[in-house]
Design a binder for these strands. Structure first.
Lengths: 154, 154
DNA sequence: ACATATTAGTTAACATTGTTAATCATTAAC
DNA sequence: GTTAATGATTAACAATGTTAACTAATATGT
């Protein structure tokens, strides 16, 4: 690797170029795979999956979900209607502050989500197994570096 | 780092865990930033931006765009209507096979896209500049490793 | 303590954006 | 040369997002 290459390899612009070449298509493929299995095997949409995922990971209020997903509260409220109708989520009034609606996965919801996680994980593992241990370590460290860069605002 | 940690760090499941923790939120933030500037400063939506982006990078047919974006041809056709109305894209019948509609960016379209690229690049650079050269190299290598893993089907 | 403001969530009306089915024009195939 | 297949569009419609208006509960200020 020449001096010039090294410089290019370590410039922010190189990282950005790389990001645009790799991340959107990758995320698209993962999303497509989830869309397909979520719809075919579990009868939910990707959006519904993402909401379940957030509830699963501790986001239990409508506002919290809206904030996390970057969409409006009414949109969440409507989406939750669907999830409640499908018996994947329950609404209950918070005792501490009765304005809050506490969202919880039902057993069916948790089971569905864990199955879908498992399925996705299996599919991703199939690809990632092709990497050597050092490549896997690179992947983890690389993602963590980017995470750190975008950690705080500004 | 203990033996156990090393093993965990280099398992496919560790990469997957890391992926889910980092990629969706990161992509969400980038998308949000683009949504905001694209709307405020350029009067287009993110979806329109992505279509422009694909045309810019050589995808010049409706079917190609539909394939690339994973949505139906009619959806692309409608979106292109908007872009033509905004004078960002032109349609023209292909001479070789007159069924094909050849899509091209107008000067305004190319200018808009390049400005938006520039803006996004500046914003991302602001974050990525905080990384050390070696962290940047890690980021690039990590993304490339993941790209390689997901390169082909299966 | 009581009127006012704020906050969480929902409802309603509507815009956007996707889908499928049907159609037109053009090219390929038998 | 008729029939089939392909690229794109149109039309009708479903899903999902938005804002504005509303309800209920809690906080605030005098």
């Amino acid at each position: 690797m020449t001096q010039i290459d090294l410089l290019e390899e370590t410039s922010p612009d190189r990282v950005i170029e790389c990001f645009w070449e790799i991340v959107p298509p990758l995320w698209g493929r993962v999303r497509d795979h989830i869309r397909q299995t979520a719809s075919e095997r579990f009868g939910i949409t990707v959006e519904q999956f993402h909401i379940l995922r957030h509830v699963y990971s501790g986001c239990s209020s409508v506002s919290g979900l809206a904030e996390a997903k970057g969409i409006s509260r009414p949109a969440i409220s409507q989406a939750v209607d669907m999830l409640v109708a499908k018996d994947l989520v329950t609404r209950s009034q918070s005792a501490a502050d009765r304005r809050f609606v506490h969202l919880q996965l039902t057993d069916a919801g948790r089971l569905l989500l864990e199955s879908l996680f498992q399925e996705t994980r299996d599919w991703m593992r199939l690809h990632l197994e092709r990497l050597s241990p050092s490549e896997m370590a690179q992947a983890v460290q690389g993602m963590q570096a980017i995470q750190a860069a975008f950690k705080s605002e500004l």
